[in-house]
Design a protein around this nucleic acid. Structure first.
Lengths: 337, 337
DNA sequence: AAAAATGCTGGAATCGTTTCCATGCACGGT
DNA sequence: ACCGTGCATGGAAACGATTCCAGCATTTTT
């Protein structure tokens, strides 16, 4: 063990060294009013003693821990990693620490994590909600400043309704993609969705109908958050419905699964099926074939959400960030399989 | 605003409701000794009042905030994301929150973050160190429980020397890879390294020499942490040295850059150059050609590091986890370009 | 039966900060 | 010369837990 003996220097030590009261030290250090002379004395003493205020005392007194909590489904997923990076980058400029929890898209784990946030008195939280809105009610009621990122909580119960949300323009992204695919002649278009992407699924159905293509419930496959589940859903879809000629996947994990499953089942992309993936990841370009994607501003979503939660003042209810279709080589004209 | 008026229920409320003293409540709730009867009363009262102890009070009293700090160079890099996931998963089983900071592999940012950890009185930290060992001395001296993951701090100054480290078996991984490449006939093997990978570079040189292949300093290219820098290094290397027939990259970002650069410069993999990448990422299999990689147990590294920092008791100084060469299709026999 | 040991219990101190409030001083207006 | 106003200042009270310690009741030992 090292110098575990020496006590941390406290505000009291500084006060003593500067010959003033603790209140004055606190005021000087947190920008309150003080005479130039006192300010100087205090600053000098603080520097001399190498004083660093402890967040512990402050937090207790303020009855809230500084920093922001961040809840994402899976930090391993490039999308959420980039989202987290955005949050971290904004928080850094405010000097606030960020505490991350991984929900695994499991409402139960989410609840546990919410409990932890409450125990820590985190009063600023950014979350990609997994559970239903009800789970968030108590938190909101206790005055925590919550911002949802990348999804809304569903169903939208009363209180959750006015939590600010930062979203990508799923609707626009889906519409562009579907228009692009129908333009290539595709009619049997499938959607590989993960739980919690009902927003995108709805947009998908709407987009199809707007183009006069009948939506078929069976062409919407659902997967859980894991890679295994994604693969199973992708493989299942391709086997069950040899008539689909295009697939839209709701995220990069599902896209990966689709490519893998197609390869395994000897379904050629884009010859046999065209593929569009939600979320542009670095490897989309390296893939064979390079994947056409709907790029998502993941980092921006995180950054904006952090701004909303950190900046006081009036907050808009919904921020929508643009999605963009990036055409590479995974889509081709419709050819019956 | 919602019910911001209602005060949080404290231990005092519970004590009153149960008709006992606060000390007793605290003991019951943290597993101290108490009579069965009192225990019951306290538990009932706590449940009735929906009491959740506040970490704030506890932390102040204990003079340390719970939870663990985690410092990684880049959360967007799949390797560190998986490492973080390991940490989070272990911490979850201890019920400890994890505060993440991104250093960008920049010693200065690392120092800032260390400062933040101290301000927060985090006394348990897992870090992928970027700066030199000196930056860590003050922290260690102040009694913080530090574990390094994935790299050592260099240079190894006195105090840092006995910080536990959890590493992948770089040496073994590099050796296997180099043996594999020489086995295919390659002699001009380049290493694309990122700053801070001196460990791997050294192992690379050793492995070559052990096989009687002269090491050539010019065949070791260095890049900074960014994708741009990685690409520049990769492209530079391939252009500068048309004689290299095999490339080993120190990480997945560099691997990505190498594939991209090769494609751009019309260098075929594996026909013109063979490629082995450190770190197996999901897309390595999707890449064209599928990449031969040295798989790294990133998640395990994080998990083990978290165990070391969370579990009290004697701690081993170094934990080395195995690397594994996974052969796919990015290497072929040597053919002069 | 007295003494010692053991086990529960609750009051009070403590952690390091912020902030309320009372005090004292200087200054300007009447 | 007096009083009100304003500002700088420091003491003390929070904040919500843990934990030391002394007090008491009970049991065990001598």
């Amino acid at each position: 063990m090292h110098g575990a003996g020496q006590r941390r220097t406290t505000i009291k030590d500084v006060a003593e060294a500067a010959g003033v009261g603790v209140a004055t030290v606190s005021r000087v250090l947190s920008g309150g009013s003080a005479s130039a002379e006192t300010r100087e004395k205090v600053l000098a003493a603080a520097a001399r003693l190498d004083y660093h205020p402890s967040a512990l005392g402050r937090n207790l007194r303020r009855r809230r821990s500084g920093g922001v909590g961040l809840l994402v489904p899976d930090i391993t997923d490039s999308f959420y990693a980039r989202l987290a990076d955005g949050v971290l980058s904004c928080a850094r400029s405010y000097g606030e620490p960020v505490t991350i929890g991984v929900t695994g898209d499991d409402p139960e784990r989410e609840s546990e994590l919410i409990g932890m946030l409450i125990e820590q008195s985190m009063d600023r939280v950014i979350a990609v909600p997994s559970g239903d809105g009800d789970a968030w009610e108590p938190v909101l009621r206790s005055g925590v400043n919550v911002v949802f990122a990348s999804r809304r909580a569903e169903p939208e119960v009363a209180d959750v309704a006015d939590v600010p949300v930062v979203l990508a323009d799923d609707r626009g992204g889906v519409r562009t993609a579907v228009e692009y695919l129908t333009g290539l002649g595709h009619r049997k278009i499938a959607f590989l969705a993960r739980r919690g992407q009902s927003q995108r699924v709805a947009a998908f159905i709407d987009a199809l109908e707007a183009l006069g293509v009948p939506a078929d419930d069976e062409l919407i496959a659902h997967a859980r958050a894991s890679r295994d589940s994604a693969y199973a859903a992708a493989a299942g879809l391709l086997q069950r419905r040899p008539d689909v000629t295009a697939v839209l996947t709701g995220g990069n994990i599902l896209g990966e699964a689709a490519v893998l499953a197609a390869r395994e089942l000897d379904v050629r992309v884009p010859r046999d099926v065209s593929l569009i993936m939600f979320d542009d990841v670095p490897w989309a370009e390296l893939c064979s074939p390079p994947l056409t994607v709907i790029a998502q501003p993941a980092q921006d979503i995180g950054y904006r959400a952090a701004e909303l939660v950190l900046r006081q003042g009036r907050r808009p209810r919904t921020v929508t960030l643009p999605s963009e279709l990036i055409v590479r080589a995974s889509c081709g004209p419709r050819r019956p399989r």
